[in-house]
Design a protein around this nucleic acid. Structure first.
Lengths: 97, 97
DNA sequence: TGTTTAATTAGATAGTTGTCTAAATGATTA
DNA sequence: TAATCATTTAGACAACTATCTAATTAAACA
């Protein structure tokens, strides 16, 4: 979970994820969409990969990056658990035992 | 959104959020549940407050902290949008136009 | 009014992060 | 096989973060 939050805590990396929703891209294609050097993008891709958010597959000279959202399920579950258990100040609903 | 991810990118802060699900607590009560000094916890609470995840209300000498999960809705929506739009390598489902 | 209590603010410091340039790796092709 | 191209790795550096101790603020109360 730590790696996941870390990976998501950067606007560039979140943009990369958004970008990959449109389909797989290789490292160069990703890099050219940002005003940043290739090594920097490569670093971001590495962190995304460490978090399991993208998969890198070598295709000849190129490295193809594809989105993997299954990791987000855990986060989604964590978030949704907040929607239920909260005893907020606005609602004051009695929670069943 | 940036502040939100930043706030969530720390295990102590996530623990504080989990803690507050059981009900409101004041700063001291939160601090004594961690192996960390009060100023450090105070700092974490400040970041959570900046992200809108907790609300601080002064009650006499004490400062009460309560969870506010409405901010998580935005994040939840962002995450859920990934569950839909993905054209993954494992599924290869034809996406309708 | 002086002291205690709750909490924050200030300032310091070690560690982490994002970015860059330069160098290295590995595949393609002339 | 030499040159080129795609990408990563290495190393440096400024900015940011988490933590601490010490000092400050503000409320409660004897």
């Amino acid at each position: 979970m730590n790696n996941l939050f870390k990976a998501l805590n950067d606007p560039t990396r979140r943009q990369i994820l958004d970008l990959l929703r449109g389909g797989d891209l290789n490292a160069g294609e990703i890099a050219e969409r940002f005003d940043m050097t290739k090594p920097s993008i490569s670093h971001h891709l590495d962190l995304l990969r460490q978090a399991g958010l993208v998969e890198a597959t070598k295709q000849g000279q190129f490295i193809n990056y594809s989105l993997n959202t299954t990791v987000l399920d855990e986060l989604l579950a964590w978030l949704m658990s907040f929607q239920k258990t909260e005893t907020s100040t606005t609602e004051k609903t009695q929670q069943p035992r």
